[in-house]
């Protein structure tokens, strides 16, 4: 089965970011496919490489990056939500006159159309949030 995953909450603040990851892992481990993981609302904060959690805690951001790298998963951050919250790649950074970017490896920034498309192409869209 093909799953689309929508993550609507930020890391460390809300369980949704952890549960979405555990669910995504289970999808792959059970032999299913993930069409895309889409990050929206504060969920975009799952994709900043500047996150520095305490060493005895899980690293939610690098966990996503490794997951994407290992299983070739498309992690997409909503551009409009990202701009509001200060998440940018090098292109966005230049376009908006910022001095740096902060997107984590394995993530890319794109539009909301990617969410709609994922919902159409998937057998199930699973939403993680409040």
């Amino acid at each position: 089965m093909k799953f689309g995953i929508l993550v609507n909450e930020g890391p460390y603040t809300h369980q949704a970011a952890d549960t979405a990851y555990q669910f995504a892992l289970a999808v792959i481990n059970k032999g299913h496919e993930i069409t895309r993981v889409f990050f929206y609302h504060d969920g975009v904060n799952n994709g900043t490489r500047l996150t520095t959690p305490p060493q005895d805690d899980r690293n939610i951001v690098s966990r996503w990056s490794e997951f994407a790298n290992t299983h070739n998963i498309d992690l997409v951050i909503c551009v409009a939500a990202a701009q509001r919250r200060g998440i940018c790649d090098s292109g966005e950074s230049k376009r908006n006159g910022k001095d740096t970017d902060n997107i984590a490896p394995g993530f890319r920034i794109s539009g909301l159309g990617q969410l709609i498309e994922a919902s159409i192409l998937s057998d199930r869209l699973v939403v993680f949030g409040d």
Partner: peptide
């Protein structure tokens, strides 16, 4: 919270997909 506003943004973008 921003949920309502950002939900409406998804709805408007999604409208272009003829669903």
């Amino acid at each position: 919270t921003i949920y309502a506003l950002e939900s409406l943004e998804v709805v408007l973008i999604g409208a272009a997909f003829d669903q």
